[in-house]
């Protein structure tokens, strides 16, 4: 599968860019020329809004901080927040979907109707509403996005679990006296999980974008955190005279989201042979 992913130029490109982003994020404290600028510990008001130069590769922001260092650290925030959001959504969505698919009947009915209700809201709107209720902070933005995202995974894993439930090996396990928990955990989950993980990796781009959108709206990360969406929101005020304060964090968002979407497209092609053949 991995080799087929690499054979598709778009997803290969996506994978390479993602690998690079992860590397940059991990090495940010080493690579950033002014790491203390990123966390807001240093300001140089007398050097604010300097254009990109050898000293400040991406220029400086409204308080004279090195934009390159801040954008680098922004990658950390975006990637970590994305992982946590997806993790939270899986943590809620997977057990619910598993229970619904395995138990069926009334339990299935209740869980799936709740899921349908949640799905009737666009995830961004729901995340905005939740973040507004929780109060603005990065943690709350992750929480809000995670809470808006789980129903998708519940649906996928439920349909997988419902199909697996009546397979012979599950019947066999039950006949051998295995409890419900064992059957769900040992026999159903491992077989139902892959499509969910694929979906989750394809969602990563949207999640990064939602976190940035919340930051942009003032409902996510708070100054002086170097979160890309927040940096774009603040830079917007100075865009006309000092475009670099918007362009670089904006590019960060664009590249990250694009890379994950390329990867997602590739994954879909690899996993859906019909689509793949039609293409070729």
């Amino acid at each position: 599968m991995f080799r087929r992913l690499l054979r598709n130029p778009l997803s290969a490109f996506g994978l390479v860019v993602i690998a690079l982003l992860v590397l940059l994020a991990v090495l940010a404290p080493v690579l950033a020329p002014y790491p203390e600028d990123a966390v807001g510990a240093t300001v140089r008001p007398e050097r604010q809004f300097e254009p990109p130069s050898g000293e400040f590769w991406f220029g400086t922001d409204d308080l004279g901080r090195d934009l390159f260092s801040r954008v680098l650290f922004g990658a950390r925030i975006s990637l970590v927040a994305g992982c946590m959001t997806i993790g939270l959504a899986l943590l809620i969505g997977v057990p619910l979907g598993l229970a619904a698919g395995y138990a069926g009947g009334l339990v299935d009915e209740i869980i799936m109707r709740v899921t349908d209700i949640m799905l009737s809201f666009p995830p961004l709107l729901l995340a905005v509403a939740l973040a507004a209720a929780f109060g603005p902070s990065l943690t709350n933005a992750v929480l809000a996005t995670g809470l808006a995202w789980w129903p998708w995974y519940t649906r996928i894993i439920r349909s997988a679990a419902a199909g697996i439930r009546s397979r012979e090996y599950v019947e066999a396990a039950r006949a051998a006296g295995a409890g419900h928990a064992t059957i769900m955990g040992r026999h159903i989950l491992p077989n139902a999980l892959p499509p969910v993980l694929v979906q989750a990796s394809m969602d990563f781009g949207s999640v990064v974008l939602t976190t940035a959108a919340l930051g942009f709206l003032g409902l996510g990360a708070q100054a002086p955190q170097p979160e890309w969406g927040l940096m774009v929101a603040i830079g917007r005020n100075y865009f006309l005279t000092h475009p670099w304060v918007v362009v670089f964090p904006g590019l960060g968002i664009l590249i990250t989201v694009m890379a994950f979407n390329f990867l997602g497209d590739g994954l879909r092609e690899v996993l859906d042979p019909r689509l793949g053949r039609a293409r070729r």
Partner: peptide, 14 residues
């Protein structure tokens, strides 16, 4: 890439 729309909107709105 429907999802990209949001990124573009975000950037362009800015």
């Amino acid at each position: 890439w429907g999802i990209l729309l949001l990124a573009a909107a975000l950037l362009l709105a800015a």
